[in-house]
């Protein structure tokens, strides 16, 4: 596993957001803050979400940009943003977002790993309820 994909500074475990768009902006901001994407990428994430939801199940969504926005990606990275109070995601309740900025396939293995975690209800719960950055880093990298 590449260890440069998830910067501990991009793991935010006690966030709150009034709605889906605010949650996506928070994720986009986290990616911009660690130098993974340029500012316009945040709007592209919102645009992508409007076309098809990135909700993947188990209370988790994986917002990311559009194909056209790859030019705004500076390096492959993810962020993990937890909303303990939940966010209404087109009728689904999301408590964890894994935001993605990728122009190559560097993050594929990590997504594959995330899928494995989410298909295991116990591990999915552990990830959703993680309160320490180290727990998240351990699960995902």
């Amino acid at each position: 596993m590449r260890d440069d994909l998830l910067d501990p500074r991009a793991v935010l475990l006690r966030e709150s957001a009034p709605d889906r768009d605010a949650a996506i902006r928070r994720c986009g901001r986290a990616l911009v803050d660690v130098g993974a994407a340029a500012e316009p990428y945040i709007e592209a994430m919102l645009e992508r979400e409007r076309s098809i939801s990135t909700y993947v199940g188990e209370g988790v969504a994986i917002p990311h940009g559009t194909n056209a926005s790859k030019g705004d990606v500076q390096r492959d990275a993810i962020c993990v943003v937890r909303f303990p109070g939940g966010v209404d995601w087109d009728g689904e309740q999301v408590t964890l977002c894994v935001g993605i900025a990728a122009k190559d396939d560097g993050h594929v293995q990590l997504l594959s790993q995330l899928a494995e975690i989410l298909l295991d209800p116990d591990r999915a719960r552990a990830l959703r309820e993680a309160t320490e950055v180290s727990q998240v880093m351990k699960e995902l990298t």
Binding site: I100, H107, S112
Partner: peptide, 11 residues
């Protein structure tokens, strides 16, 4: 997929 960086990659 649309962007090829997220959910479709996972699937």
């Amino acid at each position: 997929c649309d962007a090829g960086m997220g959910s479709s990659v996972m699937l």
